[in-house]
Structures are given as C-alpha cells and as structure tokens.
Amino acid sequence: MLKQTENIIEVSNLVKKFGNFTANDDLTFDVKQGEIFGFLGANGAGKTTTLKILSGLSYPTSGKVKVAGFDVYREREKVKKNIGYMSQKFSLYDDLTVKENIRFYGGIYGLPGKYIKEKTDELLRRLKMENIKDSLIKSLPLGWKQKIAFSVAIFHNPGIVFLDEPTGGVDPITRRDFWELIYEASYSGITVFVTTHYMDEAEYCDRVSIMDQGRIEAMDTPALLKKQYNAENMDEVFIRIARKQQL
C-alpha cells in the first residue's frame, strides 16, 4: 500500500482537564497520511475527549495539537474544514432524502452547486443507490445509512476522517462491507481515525493505540502488539492492558 510518511495528526503532551479530573493525561502520538489508525480504550478512558479536541470542538488544557497541518488553538475553523466526521449516533437527517442529505453536507462545506451535483451522481452510482436517491433516510436499513453517512463524511475530500464507533449493531456482512469502504478510502490516501469496541476490527487497522485512564498505554501495529503481550488476538491484548489497572 502506498503509505506516505507525512504526518496528518501531530499531538505532543496533550493534557485536558475538567476541574480536578484529568481526562487526557500527557498524550503524544502521530498519525500518518493514509493510515488506518484504531483508537481503542475502555469506556471512560478518555477517547471522546481526544476526538473532540482533534476535530476542533474542544480546546486542550495544554500541549501541542496539529491536525491536517493546522493548529487546533488558532486555526480551528480550518481544522473543521479539512476533516470529516461520522458517529453512529449522529450523522444523517432522517427526514431528508438521500440526495438532500448529500446536498446539505456539501453546502455546509461550501462546495459549488455544480460540483455537488456531479459528485452526487457519481457517488450514488458507486454505492448502487441511484434508485433510492429520493427515499427518506429513515426508511432505509441501518447498514445503508452507515454507508451513506461515511460517504457524506468524506464528500468534501478531507485529508482525514474520524469515525466514532461507526459499525455498531449491523449484521456481520454489512459490517464487512463497511470496512471495505474504509480500506478503499485509505487506499485513495484518506487517513482514517476510528474508534470501535469490536476487537477483530482493531486487526484491520495499520496501527492502534489503547487508552486507559486518560493515558495511552500501548501503540503499535496489531501484529507487534500481539507479540509484545504474547496474545493470540487483539481482544487478549486489550484485556491485559485494561485489566492491569484493576488488579
């Protein structure tokens, strides 16, 4: 795979505090252009806090954070323009049609009308959804919605897309179809930053980090992590790291 060595995310000594509580405790990591980066951790480990900072929704307490070449303190509107975001909970408008949703998001990112129209046709063709373009989102199966939501999130050609538990609740075939879209995006050079509770999906990532209690406890390729923790699969690696604190 063509992996450039340029960093699209650079984080050094990131700290985020809420009152006395330290949600992110001195995080340092880089993510490379085109990489699929798995961001794992137990509930409450601090993943959402980091995700909000990286997507320009929240300021760090201290530390340096650059996303797509922009500083999250001074250039956060530029950060927002150059990233895509999708979560299981919020992504599409149920009472708009497929086409309307695409036009809406294209408009938000300031894309020209003609460009939106052309790219929408191409996208619908690629997803094989031309015949449902005028259907309301709420009438579609969850798996289709997720595919549309992902395509919408990268519609403005961002350098990086953040996926917050994108595959919850779908059947195993649909979940795999979705991962093929992720591979495809990565192959075309888009960086994919993904959180998930499915540990088999962690194996699909080029690198993963595992967070616990606000700190990054491990970060490497799945193969090297398994070796380091002498584990059969990522599930074991995860359990060893996250349980260590409780023993």
Binding site: M1, P172, I173, R176, W179, E180, Y183, E184, S186, Y187, D200, E203, Y204, P222, A223, N233, M234
Partner: peptide
C-alpha cells in the same frame, strides 16, 4: 501484506466463492 488488494484480487478468481475479512 496488502489486505485491500488481496480482497479485490480474490474476488476476481472464478473458483472462489465467499471472501470476508476476519481480523488480520
């Protein structure tokens, strides 16, 4: 080494039926 390309290539072979990623 390249899972994405491997999925695409395997699908091209006539004798192969299902192709599903499973972990690594």
């Amino acid at each position: 080494e390249n899972i994405y390309k491997l999925i695409q290539d395997l699908r091209q072979f006539e004798f192969i039926d299902t192709v599903y990623p499973f972990g690594e």
